[in-house]
Nucleic acid binder design. Structure first.
Lengths: 377, 377
DNA sequence: AGGTATTTGTATTGCCAATGAACTTATGAA
DNA sequence: TTCATAAGTTCATTGGCAATACAAATACCT
């Protein structure tokens, strides 16, 4: 999930790969079927080129042809192209404090399968948890065969910090995990034979799910309120992960200087006032402190990142009062709010958004580089 | 300075432009002269291709050939390529609260000319200030002719928020500017005939200057302590500006909830405890509050952005005590600090870093797209 | 019903930039 | 002086797109 600038020269295939991705992107983003001619018109390619690329996408099984519409005007009717709803699909897995989840998303972005099991995962240790997760994954893959879908890859969402290069979970404090090699543990047990699963942060993947659910989103902050508080940042419809993949650690932004001690060793972290444990506390001012703290932390993030939208997810999704606090804080603290107001809303996705986002991230990988998937059709 | 994803198909020239930039980049980054063969070896291109690209760069006046070294081993000696020190140069301009500055940076990144005038610019109004700035720019350009340099473009650093698409300064509170069209005012008065100047934030440009001065930097936060407090964020050696160019507004991150009133209308902003006015205040705890506040705000930025280096600039550059406070705060508050410590240091550049950075940004534009400058050789 | 206009999609040719192999140039070492 | 080695150049080949011409399928007009 990090960007590495490689020094490889562009070849002729680079340009084809790039144009194939461009054509595919247009088909994916269009609300209605796209003709080869429309593809050419939208990009500036000739119809010949657009046609060749369309044929390649068809041959790769990444798009499908649909019958032409009733034909409104003169001229030969266009055969439309739409994202394929069979073929490759992404497998998303989620480990969370109180549940495990698996889901499958196809190339259209539709969730085709979803299973989850409730249950506290704290203190069970990574081994048994990942074994259960693998079983969930295999059950999902088995159900899939009948639908004409094949798992192209898998991604695992974890509530913690991950070394993105290796897929090693450095710390997941709320699971009591430390330095867990999820990839090594999971790879042999998954239904995706050749490819190791990607491992990423739960909030990052949930942000991707949010992005997929709302085509209008472009640049936003997704804040996930669970036992811990994390955030995913999306810019230009792409996940922003920082240089090492640890961006969005909003949970330990100081919102009450000298405040309560946090598990991380510092004082006054957002997590101490707006984590689930604090939200559930019986003290009368808990909601007020959570709202104010969350507002200040999110305002800091918006000032630093320059975003125009905030989505509240996880436990925050059910708290309109927090939405109001955040909105008020943003109006007060964000410099540009005067002439460019920041939109705030609660997520409409359920508790397994991260699993959906993880599956979506696999699909995004295919969307971004269709040329790599031509051979495997 | 913002990224717009355009839907233009790749053509054959795209690949040439890309490879030309790749070759140029290698020449620019190499500590010693680079041969055509080394270029080929480093990129994987054939010697034929590398040679053709090298010739193109030479013809465009972007690189120069140097005599081969004393020849250590067998074989035909290599003719080295180095960045050209004549030809195109970038003009950087800076408007600040207490000075105006202009400077010229050549393609090697060297500062070839620098002038500044001290004097309080507050309350003078944009017109007279920009007139003085234009005079400074013209003086710089006139001195330039003798050195074989030509101004390729100009960039203006301003302590405020800029609409990057239009170059309009939305707000520069410490200059008392509001909605000033710097581009329209400056363009006809500048020595760069066809091109309108870019306009950007002072801290962003200063960060670029820091980047140019230290080849080891890749991902860092540059914090500029002036009357206002701003920050520039650099990822993968590229400026991160957010979707609208307003990223890095650290000055209004809340560090003392319910604290002193800020000019922006909120309370407890970083600027109220660590802006220049607060630093100069005679109260005994001013330094302590500034250090603690700055530390908390920077820790928030590092947690949110995932950075491994912080550079303190502007007035902070002369304050070792603040450096210590920041270091302590990062150790306490940054989640990943335990296993990936964050480096903190003070900038070695002077008060006109932003002007240098602005000029550098123009040069970066040429570095990034040499093909666009082939015709104008 | 038949011709024309219009639009979609396909086939052919030419161009551009990179590749690969052969060739030339310039040096050190035997 | 000759050979080995490495740098740089030349030339035919290849992959991909542009441009153009052509075939196919429909609506509209008479």
């Amino acid at each position: 999930m990090t960007s590495a600038s490689v020094r490889v020269p562009a070849r002729q295939q680079s340009i084809r790969a790039s144009n194939l991705a461009l054509a595919y992107r247009l088909v994916l983003d269009a609300p209605t079927p796209v003709s080869r001619a429309a593809l050419a018109a939208a990009t500036g390619m000739t119809r010949a080129t657009a046609g060749a690329l369309a044929d390649a996408l068809l041959a790769a099984g990444l798009v499908a042809e649909v019958a032409p519409p009733p034909a409104s005007s003169a001229g030969r009717p266009a055969t439309g192209l739409v994202p394929a709803s069979t073929g490759w699909a992404g497998l998303g897995l989620e480990v969370n404090v109180d549940h495990l989840a698996a889901c499958v998303v196809d190339l259209t972005g539709a969730v085709r399968h979803q299973v989850s099991i409730e249950g506290d995962q704290r203190g069970r240790g990574p081994g048994p948890v990942l074994a259960d997760l693998a079983e969930l994954a295999n059950r999902a893959a088995a159900d899939l065969a009948a639908t004409g879908l094949h798992v192209a890859g898998a991604a695992v969402a974890v509530p913690g910090l991950v070394r993105s290069t290796s897929g090693r979970v450095l710390r997941a404090p709320n699971l009591d995990w430390q330095d867990v090699d999820v990839v090594a543990d999971l790879t042999p047990r998954l239904p995706v034979t050749p490819l190791a699963p990607a491992v990423g942060n739960e909030a990052d993947y949930a942000a991707l799910a949010e992005l997929a659910a709302d085509r209008g989103l472009r640049d936003f902050l997704y804040v996930s309120g669970e036992i811990g508080v994390g955030a995913g940042v999306v810019f230009d419809r792409r996940l922003f992960t920082g240089s090492r993949g640890w961006a969005g650690e909003i949970g330990h932004v100081t919102v009450e200087p000298g405040g309560d001690a946090c598990r991380c060793g510092a004082r006054g972290c957002l997590e101490t006032v707006a984590g689930l444990d604090a939200l559930r506390a019986p003290t009368p001012d808990a909601a007020v402190r959570a709202g104010a703290g969350l507002g200040r932390a999110i305002a800091a993030a918006v000032n630093l990142y320059d975003l125009d939208t905030v989505v509240l997810g996880g436990a925050y999704a059910g708290r309109p009062d927090l939405e109001e606090s955040v909105r008020a804080a943003l109006t007060e603290h964000v410099v540009s709010a005067g002439w460019a107001p920041v939109a705030v809303r609660r997520s409409g996705l359920g508790g397994t958004a991260a699993a959906v986002g993880a599956a979506t991230s696999v699909v995004h990988g295919i969307h971004a580089d269709p040329a790599a998937w031509e051979a495997r059709a």
